[in-house]
Design a protein around this nucleic acid. Sequence first.
DNA 1: TTTTAGCACTCGGGAACATAGAGTGCTAAA
DNA 2: TTTAGCACTCTATGTTCCCGAGTGCTAAAA
Lengths: 350, 350
Amino acid sequence: MQMPIDDRKQRVLRAIVSLYSDDGEPVGSGLLAEHFGRAVSSATLRNEMAALTKLGLLEQPHTSAGRVPSAKGYRYYIDNLLDTSLKLSESEKRAAEQAFREMDYDPERLAQSAARALADWTGYTVVATTPKSEDMCIAHFEVMQVGRYTAAVLAVTGAGGVRTRTAKLDFELRPGDAERLAQTLNEHLTFRSAADVSQPLLHAAAEGMGAGGAVFYPVISAAYTLLKEAGRPNVYLEGQQNVLGYSPQEECLRTLMEFFGDEEAVKRFISPKSERTTVLLGDEMPEYRMPGVCILSKRYVAGGGLTGAIGIVGPTRMRYREVIPRLEYFALLLGQCMSGKTEHGQRQEE
Amino acid sequence: MQMPIDDRKQRVLRAIVSLYSDDGEPVGSGLLAEHFGRAVSSATLRNEMAALTKLGLLEQPHTSAGRVPSAKGYRYYIDNLLDTSLKLSESEKRAAEQAFREMDYDPERLAQSAARALADWTGYTVVATTPKSEDMCIAHFEVMQVGRYTAAVLAVTGAGGVRTRTAKLDFELRPGDAERLAQTLNEHLTFRSAADVSQPLLHAAAEGMGAGGAVFYPVISAAYTLLKEAGRPNVYLEGQQNVLGYSPQEECLRTLMEFFGDEEAVKRFISPKSERTTVLLGDEMPEYRMPGVCILSKRYVAGGGLTGAIGIVGPTRMRYREVIPRLEYFALLLGQCMSGKTEHGQRQEE
DNA sequence: TTTTAGCACTCGGGAACATAGAGTGCTAAA
DNA sequence: TTTAGCACTCTATGTTCCCGAGTGCTAAAA
């Protein structure tokens, strides 16, 4: 995949990416010469640009327009020309830390708040998932009566998150029922992954609830659903209103909105394959082709094998040098807050 | 506000609203005559239309275009010409019931699922709030250890909803701590509205936790926050991607997206002032002026003084006669499911 | 061999203009 | 009170023309 491009061509490509990201106008040879301080003439640059176009790294909207980086050009830029050791300024770091300090500690809320803060900061759309691990299980169940016929089944996942599901029974609950149900669930269903739980096991649990266990089936079912969903991260999407600011054209906007509506797809594309920040171009997405759009994503690590992801959806012509460090710092802080490593106080409201 | 409009003018206005809702094109006198089966000539209708225009109920995009109902015209139509006893067909009712049967019972999830189902059904954007009552209080607290230093505080609201908040402590929790904390919270903070809870009371609760109560302050704080937020309904917004299908123009789209991003405003405008279905026109909204957009909202009643709201955001030129019955039936079913009046089974997954 | 000046060429976008058609308001007759 | 008839208005569409930006190519310069 490495392409033999001489040094000057690289500088030209980098310059075009930079100039294009400024105002979204195709870059002509004149402007480019200006950018290089007229050290070379526009004619020379025209030759270089023609060569880059032949290589497929640049393209022309039409004959008499300037050049625009192609998808392939962006890919090359991102893979080869982008400085990966980008750092955030101290003041920006402090601002981010301050934003996190004001968030609630709960993992669900934290993911959502972080997504919103990053969306506000960047002006793009941000997705964050709650953390999960490969073999997520339930550490503890609790059952609470929430109505005469209804019981809430609560589960604490290995990640420290709490999830709820409500079960409706055919008869009135009596005092003590909730405790007994919780105890049975804790005996049979904790510290097991969903795959380990068989139908007979569920039956055994139902039996353990006594009084003709079948009547408690809704509770078992709720608990089992919680277990199955424990490993499924929740997705929070914030800053959807920002699309209008960066979406290139009508057609793409439509696809983008549909993409946002498809939670599974969002989750899939935001989950990073590698440790590093991943940049996915909209042209490269099979199901949702969105030229002009890109998705940055970064894994965050919350300790104990728990990982989540946070990603930014924005224009291909975004200022990567500024946005990537922000994303990475947010991922770092998110991981730290989730694993409780930081001095992360409760929000003091009043 | 009653306007003296003779019978034929009413029929003309109704016809124009109907024809305009079909394809969004301004309605001319010719088309209108056709619609009336040529019982009257286009010239007569032109006179009527001119009169309605003078009354401000119709407007012309430009001289040689047809007429379009003005905001005032729509207001008149909705208040005076819309049959309020619109009913859904049996098959549509059954489809709606089926959709509800597949939803989870939990109030939060139920609100969200209902919003999504209605959004899919209508092709517009739907907002649903979780139910609340005026003096919402907490029926029961529970505390669960979710990490070495962290405890989840759970609260069951009077509505039967479960909410969570996580507290981080400065020291390691010991076995039995959680139970003691829960007991103290239940003693001091249940069945009280947020207004009844004073600072001294919180101190008393902290004392009740023993061992120099102050160290448990994060737990108290979390519980107090839950109490304060118990009466605050959550808002679920679904079908945001549908905006492109009904938003009239670029400018309005922008306002609409900003509106969707402002959760408080959405909540405010969706909360109905009356028992009946409310229709709010985008032109009538002070903060977010959105000509061409309207918001339908309907209260739902979940029993025990609990009310929530469900609303549809769509184009002013929507088919009210079809959409309103759907909204009302959804509100009815939502209330029934929340109050547990129906045979609402748990979802059987496998 | 590489760079540059010069120049003809291409193409998009805007202005100016013409035209067709939809729909109106008005008048006068039914 | 209704209607036919007609002049009028305004938009949308298409055509032509032209400007300017930017290119590719060629030939001279470095």
